[in-house]
Amino acid sequence: MRSVFMRHRWEPYLWILPSVLLMLIFVVFPIGIVFRLAFSNISRAGVVGDFAGLKNFQEAVSSAAFPQVMLNTLIWVVSVVGLSTLTGFICAMVLNQEFVGRKIARSIMVFPWAASLVIQASVWNYIIKMEYGNLNNILLNLGFIQSAVNWRASYQIEFVWECAIGIIVTIPFVTFTVLSGLQSIDDAYYEAATVDGAGFWKKLRHVTLPLVKPSLTVSMVLNIIYVFNSFPIIYTITKGAPANKTDTMVTYLYMLAFYDQKKGPATALSVIGFVILCVASGIYMFITMRKEDTGL
């Protein structure tokens, strides 16, 4: 009896040991290094010097580009997460209906998600090219336009494109998360609502939304983290140009570290990003834990 008890005590730890080791080596250790670098003097050539206090943070936050970059990050996260959640929700509602070809429609929906983000961003970059882009070619051939249009006439428009592409590539994830939620709703609720005389909007508000809320929360919070960290779209299309006006925090700190060779401020910025995401994940954990408590 005692030996079984003992075995049970250490056995689970043994089983999770490999995962814990991997996490330590590939997650915790690098985070530690970044924190150390953020508070150190780092030379241009890469020599790590002594403790620098908050110097790197000051330099990062006081740069001329910082306010614009933070504003862009906010617009980027809010617009991409917001609009992709709305559109993804509508798509999920449609795909939850019975219709001929529903399986095909669902597969088409998931295809873009299977392609890597860099490939999707490069393809879109090609589509909107003025000189040999597909969009101009199609419109010219259909006779909608007479000469090639510059789809990237200003950096504001370029940023709108980037957000739009971000939304398009995020929709599949939202759709499938919400769809799984929708499918778990018992038809009996809708039948009861119909008997009570509820129309489409009332059912949506009082039956669908409350029951699909957990899935929506999961997709939204995960999306905030993914989109905040998303790098390929902006880097592929504008690299933050002109003059950091289309940078988000992640692309900005990449350019700072690997292009401007300012590793100190760049690591400081990534620590700031880490803290922001910790708060977001904290909220996520809080919501999911509370959900479990109430047994919803």
Binding site: M130, R152, T238, K239, A241, P242
Partner: peptide, 20 residues
């Protein structure tokens, strides 16, 4: 070329090679 902030020398060389 319309977008000098994002069109690199290699983009320009491609356009030149294509006669554009």
């Amino acid at each position: 070329n319309p977008n000098p902030a994002t069109q690199t020398r290699y983009d320009l060389q491609d356009m030149f090679a294509a006669g554009k």
